[in-house]
Design a protein around this nucleic acid. Structure first.
Length: 476
RNA sequence: GUCCCCAUGGUCAAGCGGUUAAGACAUCGCCCUUUCAAGGCGGUAUCGCGGGUUCAAUUCCCGCUGGGGACGCCA
């Protein structure tokens, strides 16, 4: 049985990179009928917060990357919060101490810091000098360090990178347990991966250099290590590791902007992995079906917001129903005060018609508010491009408006009728249809772009159209 | 600085010794069209450099260069 895990530390929101790591783990597990485990690595008491745990769980749920074992769902290898497993780590540390594979170190932080700075000055890498290996038992605070023997090398057989060799000499006797008794990352991750029977560790490439350390812990514990697969990092637009300064990095932000989780997951899957076909659009089930570690890339991938935007547009217009689209738009319209709760009750049909006009156009849901604003507000704000058109056609503007006024007065707002009449009327003007339509469009919307003009007229209705046209005569 | 990883268009990438070097996003042009989109068609654009190996290297090996990551009592 294949068992993989995603093990975030709750020190902030769920990062895009973390989300993709979780996704690859999830896809690999589902593809192989295995289990996907979620473990919270909260051994850093200072920085871990409950709020952060909440956000991470919510983000994963939003992405529909659901775990088989872990917080909220439990499982037979729990608890899944490391802060609740401290007694276990203590036991393991004691065992290593008893077997002479680890030792107590009485060096202070200050002493070590001094040595570190000295090494830096001499431009040599800092390595703890193993001074306390043979120290006598003392009544002083201590850390627990693992004994790393000099010489030889440690091989990591990575599923993505192949064999990677590290000389043991680059390692020092690193700390397993802090002075305050809290165990450290490399130690707990290893112990838990053993206890939780993890078969494959799929994680970011930044962990590759931790792997030899963990391999030494496996060895000291006489345990067989799992398979490792280090996936490439997600890069910002300057090719450095994606971080806040590159823009939105949290899953939450993408959710709020109005990306669909399916589109987001689809995009994430395409970063660092490529399918065996020319397809780009994949449902989660198709991703599961097609996923394999063999097709994961080795090099880092830049996060391309453009492609994400495009993909989200595809989902918005092709992968969800009209009703879904409308319902997904409502929260944004409410939030931006374009509509109120009572509007939804009383005017749902109108809202629906309006919103659907934009389905082909918007790329993220949050764009809906601005794009349909003029359908709900009678004070039309005329933007700069529109002003220019009116200015350039000053001499005929009001004549055009007179035409549309008459047409609507006589024909109503049926879009076929209006269109036929208007196309007929254009003939008496010596201007391009484009300009003719623009002038009317501006009177109704204040803009020179938007849905079909006749759709706008029909949906606005006779009363609003007449009112806006009349008002437009006196605006320049 | 030391160790490790990586290297195909602007971006994501296919390729796994012989190819007209796929495809997608972006970009440009055309078509459709009342605008903007969407859609259709087409164009521009890629194997970092230098050595080998080989009849033949984008592909294999070495070096260089460049980029990234790790060097915590963070994870």
């Amino acid at each position: 049985m294949i068992r993989v895990r995603f093990a975030p530390s709750p020190t902030g929101y769920l990062h895009i990179g973390g989300a993709r790591t979780a996704l690859f783990n999830y896809l690999f597990a589902k593809k192989n009928n295995g289990k996907f485990i979620l473990r919270i690595e909260d051994t850093d008491a200072e920085r871990s917060t409950e709020e952060s745990v909440k956000i991470i769980l919510e983000s994963l749920k939003w992405l529909k990357i659901l775990w088989d074992e872990g917080p909220e769902v439990g499982g037979e290898y729990g608890p899944y919060f490391q802060s609740q497993r401290l007694h276990i780590y203590k036991e393991f540390a004691q065992k290593l101490l008893n077997e002479g594979k680890a030792y107590k170190c009485y060096c202070t932080k200050e002493e070590l810091e001094q040595q570190r700075q000295k090494a830096e000055k001499m431009k040599i890498p800092f390595k703890y000098d193993s001074k306390c290996r043979n120290a006598k038992e003392q009544d002083k605070p201590y850390t627990i360090r693992i004994k790393i023997n000099n010489g030889g090398e440690t091989e990591v057989n990575d599923l993505i990178r192949g064999k990677v060799v590290f000389k043991n000499d680059v390692l020092d006797d690193f700390i397993l347990v802090r002075q305050d008794g809290m165990p450290t990352y490399n130690f707990v991750a290893t112990v838990d991966d053993i206890l939780m029977k993890i078969t494959h560790v799929i994680r970011g490439e930044d962990h590759l250099s931790n792997t030899p350390k963990q391999l030494h812990i496996y060895k000291a514990l006489n345990e067989k290590p799992p398979q490792f697969a280090h996936i490439p990092l997600i890069l910002g637009n300057d090719r450095s590791r994606l971080s806040k300064r590159h823009g939105a990095t949290s899953v939450t932000e993408y959710k709020e902007k109005g990306f669909l989780p399916e589109a987001f997951v689809n995009y994430l899957a395409l970063l660092g992995w490529s399918p065996d076909s020319e397809e780009n659009v994949f449902s989660i089930d198709e991703l599961i079906k097609n996923f394999s570690l063999e097709r994961v890339h080795k090099s880092g991938a830049m996060f391309d917001n453009n492609k994400l935007l495009w993909l989200n547009g595809v989902y918005l217009r092709e992968k969800i129903t009209e009703d879904d689209f409308v319902n997904l738009c409502l929260p944004y319209l409410l939030k931006d005060k374009i509509i109120s709760d009572s509007d939804i009750k009383d005017n749902f049909n109108y809202i629906k018609k309006v919103v659907l006009l934009e389905r082909e156009k918007i790329k993220i849901l949050s764009e809906i508010s601005y794009s349909v604003e003029y359908f709900f507000k009678d004070e039309i704000k005329i933007d700069d491009d529109a002003k220019k058109i009116w200015e350039e056609n000053k001499s005929i503007k009001n004549d055009v408006l007179k035409v549309i006024l008459n047409v609507v007065n006589e024909e109503g707002v049926d879009k076929i009728k209006v269109e036929n009449r208007l196309k007929d009327e254009i003939k008496s003007f010596n201007i391009k249809p484009k300009i003719f339509m623009h002038i009317i469009r501006i009177a109704l919307t204040g803009r020179i772009t938007g849905p079909g003009l006749f759709d706008i007229i029909e949906i606005l209705g006779k009363e609003k159209v007449l009112r806006r046209i009349e008002k437009a005569f006196s605006i320049s």
